[in-house]
Design a protein around this nucleic acid. Structure first.
Length: 240
DNA sequence: AACCAGGACGTGA
DNA sequence: TCACGTCATGGT
């Protein structure tokens, strides 16, 4: 008996990769400002999974993961640039500054009161780890770190095989399979099952690319008002 | 001028 | 468990 979910999810991955190419997540400030990258469609460091390359980039991903909560990456990136300009993208600095001082820099990413307080606590935790990897349980105990943010940090900052489920992922999965899943774990489990037989490193690479591709596809075709007629996944999607 | 963007959390039923 | 209100700015 064939697993229809496994078959479709694997096929979708291959097709999206062929269509869009490597997305080069996670977007890092230094690489996003490169002249090679003219728009979000160009990718960041496509096919290169060696990032983050130091503790500073690791922490940058942690902060970015919080800043982008319920906000476009454009605005989160602007907030990151503001922090960087103020030399606050360092855990030591961020942990010691007053939250009110952060609010100005990150205002453009929304929820600046909550986020500035939560970023401080996050920085403190980052320092307490002393270069060790966090566990999912530890991250989830922090205020403001939910499942998606935790998994983003674990996958993109620490190369651990967690699948990141966001609003885009849920929308695409529900449309493709004609479902109405709402729970994070229900959606994530589909992907874990599909790639159960893959090795650790392969899962890290695939989950990294898969999530980035889903974001790309949700923006380009599977938006709130989907562009089904021209979608290249139409033939295997219940919605189209 | 609503509506939404790479969520998380607290609350009451 | 689940649906809903809240937090907040900026682009379309």
């Amino acid at each position: 008996m064939e697993d229809i979910f496994e078959y479709c999810l694997k096929k979708i991955y291959v097709l999206m990769l062929a269509e869009y190419g490597h997305q080069g997540w996670w977007p890092l400030l230094k690489l996003s400002q490169s002249p090679l990258k003219k728009s979000w469609k160009d990718g960041y460091h496509p096919g290169d999974y060696s990032y983050p390359r130091d503790e500073f980039q690791t922490f940058e991903i942690w902060v970015g993961a919080v800043l982008t909560q319920n906000t476009s990456w454009t605005h989160a990136q602007k907030a990151l640039e503001n922090l960087d300009r103020l030399d606050l993208l360092l855990a030591e600095k961020l942990a010691s500054v007053k939250p009110e001082h952060l609010s100005g820099a990150i205002r453009c990413s929304g929820y600046f009161n909550q986020k500035s307080r939560r970023l401080k606590r996050l920085a403190e935790f980052f320092l307490a780890l002393r270069s060790q990897k966090p566990t999912r349980r530890e991250l989830l105990k922090l205020k403001g770190i939910g499942q998606e943010t935790a998994d983003s940090i674990l996958l993109y900052a620490h190369h651990r095989p967690y699948f990141v489920v966001d609003a885009y992922t849920i929308r695409i999965v529900n449309r493709v399979f004609g479902l109405d899943l709402k729970k994070y774990d229900d959606v994530a489990d589909l992907f874990y099952q599909a790639y159960l037989s893959e090795g650790f490193e392969n899962r890290v690479r695939i989950f990294n690319e898969y999530h980035a591709l889903l974001v790309r596809h949700a923006k380009q075709f599977c938006s709130r008002s989907p562009r089904c007629p021209t979608c290249f996944l139409r033939f295997l999607c219940r919605h189209g």
